[in-house]
């Protein structure tokens, strides 16, 4: 466990607003903007599980901070 707050980057140019990351975030960290693209609403809840990265079809979202389980 670590108490460090996660950091989420969303590449607005690449995000196509499909909503997958928002719908399946286990911690409900993300919301849709008016144009449908993803935005961070609740960063404190992020567990850095990395599912949003894995399921983003457009490589538009990345979770920073400590390494998470998805890629190691």
């Amino acid at each position: 466990m670590n108490s460090e707050v996660a950091h989420i980057d969303i590449n607005e140019k690449w995000c196509k607003g499909c909503g997958i990351c928002i719908a399946f975030c286990p911690a409900k960290v993300l919301v849709a903007r008016e144009d449908g693209k993803a935005a961070v609403a609740n960063i404190e809840a992020c567990t850095r599980c990395g599912l949003c990265e894995l399921r983003c079809p457009d490589y538009a979202i990345s979770v920073g901070g400590k390494q998470h389980a998805s890629t190691n």
Binding site: C18, P57, D58
Partner: peptide, 10 residues
């Protein structure tokens, strides 16, 4: 938008 191909390529 939403196409799974990018997920698979990833």
């Amino acid at each position: 938008p939403g196409c799974g191909n990018g997920i698979i390529m990833g």
